[in-house]
Amino acid sequence: MTEDHLLPSSVSQVGTVTKYELLNYFRSRRFFVLLIIGLFISALLTGLVAYYGISTFASSALGFYSFWWGSLIPLIIAITGIFFGGDAISGEFQNKTGYFLVANPLRRSSIYIGKWVGSLIASLIIFAVYAAIAVGNGIYYFGTNIPYQFGESLIFSLLYLIAVLGFTFFFSSLFKSSSMSILVTTILFLFAFGIIQLVVSNFAQIEPWFIITYGAGIIGNVLTDPYPTTQNVRGAFGGERNAVVYAVTIPEGIAILLVYFVVTAALGLLLFERREFT
């Protein structure tokens, strides 16, 4: 045998990185923990609806999907994004697994994109399981006439997942410690974004268009009929203050999520390209 073989294209190398990233995920505890979380939430909802009756939760198919899908999928997406993306890059530095890959003839961008696609596919599996159980229950209670808004919500959820993974990969590139990058993204998604959104909209009365979770509001909003609009609330907080309840529109939401993805993915890739394996 000689070394007259040609190097595969970068696209093919991305595929190789993705394949082994997925293999690693499927053998890891975190994938099964997330799958169990998804199944547990689905089982809990199924049990609650069966026990209390569907009328307690929704009177229409749209209301059902709003309750089941719109209210919980953003949380599930955030958790999968944090678990799969939070240390995808930082772990390569901390655990020194990056040294095994990086010394080979492939671009760093191929590693970054391959790992990102691997995380997306792993997240999509959790996403698909949750969606399948939601649809199964929806069909059981309201028949096969699934509202088209659920399709839209699915697409927006996918967009949100892509944006969340772009964001978590960016933070993963920023830190060399796995626990630090996971901690920061967890705090941001589960606490900080919500608090900032609340403070900015209620106290400063500024539309929080710069927050990813605000953009993700389209996932639930589209399942509400009529689509919610921005409302002025007089006498909020039990006093004389006026407040504004902002409702993100579909074009705004799509733009926010797309910008988040493009900017954070580009920055994350740039950071990874420049980061040194010292």
């Binding site: 890891s28 010394a103 080979n104």
Partner: peptide, 21 residues
């Protein structure tokens, strides 16, 4: 990098391999 390292094999420090592989 890709072209330059095409004909190279390298072992730098002691890399770790994904433990599940």
């Amino acid at each position: 990098k890709k072209k330059a390292l095409e004909s190279c094999g390298a072992l730098i420090e002691s890399p770790e391999i994904y433990p599940s592989l």
